[in-house]
């Protein structure tokens, strides 16, 4: 997401799946000359103690992110839709399994 410095290896973001059944989670970033080296570096930097069973790396420049400036217009539509949450509905306490 930041511009690349002349002569510097590109920046990669690293995502690790901690164990089977979990999502890949962003753990940090690193520099590498290419994708394969990024994977290798990610293994050495972020999984020295069995922290993962799978790694994704992606060039930071390839990530499209929502901008903090758009915070309100982008996320506001869900703010007033309280009826999307189960707690919106009153059910008598004696109704089982709800």
């Amino acid at each position: 997401m930041t511009g690349q410095v002349q002569g510097e290896w590109p920046l990669y973001e690293v995502f690790v799946r901690g164990k089977r059944g979990l999502n890949h989670v962003h753990v940090g970033s690193l520099h590498a000359a290419d994708d394969q080296m990024a994977l290798r570096h990610a293994r050495d930097v972020y999984t020295r103690r069995n922290e993962g069973v799978s790694i994704w790396v992606v060039r930071s420049a390839e990530i499209t992110a929502s901008s903090p400036d758009e915070k309100d217009p982008l996320f506001a539509p869900s703010g007033d839709k309280v009826y999307r949450h189960p707690t919106f509905y009153d059910i008598p306490d004696d109704v089982p399994h709800m």
């Binding site: 930041t2 410095v5 510097e8 920046l11 940090g28 970033s29 690193l30 930097v45 020295r48």
Partner: peptide, 18 residues
């Protein structure tokens, strides 16, 4: 490894590794 975690945190503030 610790140095690398911290350098990448620092880079998010707009400084380059170099």
């Amino acid at each position: 490894g610790h140095g690398l975690y911290l350098y990448s945190a620092c880079e998010t503030l707009g400084v380059s590794r170099q």
